[in-house]
Design a protein around this nucleic acid. Structure first.
Lengths: 261, 261
DNA sequence: TCCTTGCACATTGCATGCAATCGAGCATAC
DNA sequence: GTATGCTCGATTGCATGCAATGTGCAAGGA
């Protein structure tokens, strides 16, 4: 498994011009799935909250059928959990399971980074470098909301750089699943600066085609991300704590469950 | 990233006594999902075959609703593809996409192997070793059906050895998805013997706790598996060819598609 | 002869209704 | 005073019906 190869430099066939064009007629199920998953990922619907078909149907002005199908879809992606004859709740997980999710995420991203280091084309490498360098402004400004947005794009570019649609899909799916549990990670003191430094290592390795180095750097990066997020979730910081009280998300609720399967 | 560590030897907390007990009342949707996915994975339903709700509903003696939900579930796992207002078909994929699936599978298993080498307990290592050694009989007998069954168990044990439920789930899901495209791989001449030798390398690395070696060995193993399967699919061997003719699975059908997304 | 246009049929998408199951609260027994 | 059993309300699981969309074929025009 040699590292530091000569850069192959094959840019992707078609970076998807993103020409969606028409309003794109979508089904109700898709619409509902989108909105619900967004609310879950953004934290409007917190882990443990119960979702009942009739209520959602009325809220969105549709019948129970499409709501039901949307919930099934969310259950399949892991954002909610179904309990037979007992409805669905936004996914709650134990602390250990959360750690496993972060580890799986780290492994997936390490894998993507490894392949990206080997396969990214010249244009892609350049784009990644500039993207990273641009984020320094956000760090200096302490703009953690802006950095969060940048961060998503950064990791997405690495996924795409691996030139494997399956791994891309796996990484995206995993990212969606962990989203509800990693909100506000950048509010941990010093995390922003540290994140930038870790990204720098990943970028450096990818730029020179150091596959093993890229994998190791990304793995290390996500290990720290996981740590920070866990601290946020359990240390709980004030702003969240209030809302949690209103929606019953106590540590017990997180620790128990897991009986699903 | 050191290899060859001293073996930590922590056996899993509870190997699941497998006491399912009662007949376990399951929903119609689950039942249907199970049966359909099994038929797809076994090849009774070949890629490209159309599945219509009404037909399946009548066949299983239920209404369209549970059939529909089961199909949605299969679509979420990737075994079938849904086209809006146009029904579902058993998943067909392009050759390049198939290669990507095999690569993703290889990466997942390499990852699992790496962790397994670090984390398997003494009992697990011993179990894996004996399982592998037992398979020599199947190889000598040329019993490729038996070997196929053994092979599933072997890889499953490696997944479990990584002690991470998320990675375990990912690997299982990916295995299900590729199943329809890797049938009869062991019928490729010499593949059985080669597979055994490759397994031996994986086992050896895991036994001594050589993480990187285990990952590399498993990756190499699956690269060859992918090659063999692709050859079977495209070279097509006689037994399958007949059935394919009856169900329209020509190379064109495999090459096209992919517009899904 | 080939392409376009219109219509009829088949199939999916969604709405609604009914039965089965689960959980809570109360009554009763110990 | 606590535990056990029962009934009732709430919610899900499944069946069925109707409207919307897509497909295939046939007829007409270039």
């Amino acid at each position: 498994m040699g590292s530091t190869t000569t850069i192959p430099a094959i840019d992707p066939p078609a970076p998807a011009p993103s020409a969606d064009g028409p309003p794109a007629r979508v089904s109700l199920v898709e619409e509902l799935g989108q909105r619900l998953s967004q609310e879950i990922m953004e934290g409007a619907l917190l882990p443990g909250v119960r979702l009942e078909e009739a209520g959602l149907a009325e809220r969105f002005g549709v019948s129970r059928t499409p709501v039901r199908e949307a919930l099934n879809y969310l259950a399949a992606t892991g954002l909610v959990q179904k309990r037979p004859n007992r409805g669905v709740v936004v996914t709650t997980i134990s602390r250990s399971r959360l750690q496993q999710m972060f580890e799986a995420m780290a492994e997936l991203e390490a894998c993507a980074s490894r392949l990206a280091a080997l396969r990214m084309g010249a244009r892609e490498r350049d784009s990644l470098r500039r993207l990273h360098e641009g984020s320094v402004d956000l760090v200096e400004a302490g703009d953690y909301r802006g950095y969060d947005a940048f961060n998503r794009v950064f990791h997405e570019q690495v996924y795409e750089g691996c030139h494997n649609g399956e791994i891309l899909d796996l990484a995206r799916a995993m990212r969606r699943r962990v989203a509800p549990f990693r909100r506000a990670q950048f509010q941990v003191p010093g995390r922003l600066v540290a994140s930038f430094a870790e990204h720098a290592q990943v970028v450096a390795a990818i730029l020179v085609g150091d596959a093993d180095g890229a994998a190791a750097a990304m793995r290390a990066h996500l290990r720290l991300v996981g740590g920070a997020s866990a601290r946020v979730l359990h240390g709980i910081e004030p702003a969240e704590a209030e809302r949690l009280g209103a929606a019953r998300l106590d540590i017990e609720a997180l620790e128990s469950d897991s009986a699903a399967r």
